[in-house]
């Protein structure tokens, strides 16, 4: 049952991409898809991490609710009203921003304040940002669907804005992966990948945004980043199995081992990146 309910929206997204449609519509599908993957990552990651935190603050349930709603809205393939969708996107942004503030406050009140040990082990400063990104990508998709009807927002402006969001999001995700992989002392050479490929992708995309012309390298980098996100989840799953007791000790190792749901946020952002490229590419014709 659960498998089918998850598979259905994915099929819908694929159908929408394959179907000939306006550039805005196709781009919107990428943003929606990216937002859905990101929402999924946030949901699973915050569920795990806040379970580790025993949900000691009732607000710790908010990102789960918000990410679930985002997952439904973005994964549902546009079958919700614009108004409903906007509420969900704004909520994601608000909960994400609130989370950023709360995590910052929480780290600051630990013994030693913002010393490295707290940045490595206490509430992750950047993590709630992924929920903000989810809301932004969803909102961009909504704006694009609107523009189909009346061309309210110029394509180029949207393309650059979306590209900037994705590039910024990638940079933030790289920072978080970098911090956590530093915590793991880069003990496996593969741990360098998320701090080497996605930064190039972010730079390439940022350059495209600045020049308003997509470079030929960007799609390849986006594809590599998207793949890396999935490979990262697989790597992390293997990492969990390597911890003491392996999967039999899953109650400890899912929490203590590398976070399986975290890397796919790269995939979500990269998918959205394709949408941004589509808009930048189509700024003169289409």
């Amino acid at each position: 049952m659960r498998g089918r309910s998850l598979a259905l929206p994915l099929v819908r997204i694929l159908l929408r991409i394959a179907r000939p449609a306006s550039r805005e519509a196709r781009a919107a599908t990428f943003f929606t898809g990216g937002a859905a993957v990101l929402a999924g990552s946030v949901l699973a990651d915050s569920a795990t991490e806040h379970y580790r935190g025993s949900f000691r603050n009732p607000a710790m349930v908010l990102p789960l609710l918000s990410a679930s709603a985002s997952l439904i809205i973005n994964g549902g393939g546009g079958s919700f009203s614009r108004k409903t969708a906007d509420v969900v996107h704004v909520a994601a942004g608000a909960v994400g921003l609130g989370g950023l503030g709360f995590h910052a406050w929480n780290v600051g009140r630990q013994t030693g304040g913002y010393r490295l040990g707290n940045l490595l082990y206490k509430a992750p400063l950047g993590a709630p940002g992924a929920l903000v990104l989810t809301g932004l990508l969803g909102a961009i998709a909504g704006a694009l669907r609107e523009s189909r009807a009346g061309a309210v927002v110029p394509r180029l402006v949207t393309g650059r804005a979306a590209g900037a969001v994705v590039a910024f999001g990638l940079a933030g995700t790289v920072a978080e992966a970098g911090l956590l992989h530093f915590r793991g002392a880069f003990h496996n050479p593969a741990m360098w990948l998320p701090v080497s490929i996605p930064p190039l992708t972010a730079l390439s995309l940022a350059r495209d945004v600045a020049r308003a012309i997509p470079s030929p390298a960007t799609p390849y980098l986006l594809a590599m980043t998207a793949t890396l996100g999935l490979a990262g989840a697989a790597f992390h799953a293997w990492g969990v199995s390597r911890n003491m007791g392996g999967w039999r000790n899953w109650r400890q190792n899912l929490l203590a081992g590398p976070p399986i749901p975290a890397p796919p946020s790269f995939t979500g952002l990269a998918i959205a990146g394709f949408g941004a490229l589509l808009l930048l590419k189509g700024r003169t014709h289409g």
Partner: peptide, 13 residues
């Protein structure tokens, strides 16, 4: 093989 995850003050597995 299972140890502990939650090490902070007032936290328990």
């Amino acid at each position: 093989p299972r140890g502990y995850v939650r090490l902070d003050v007032n936290r328990r597995d």
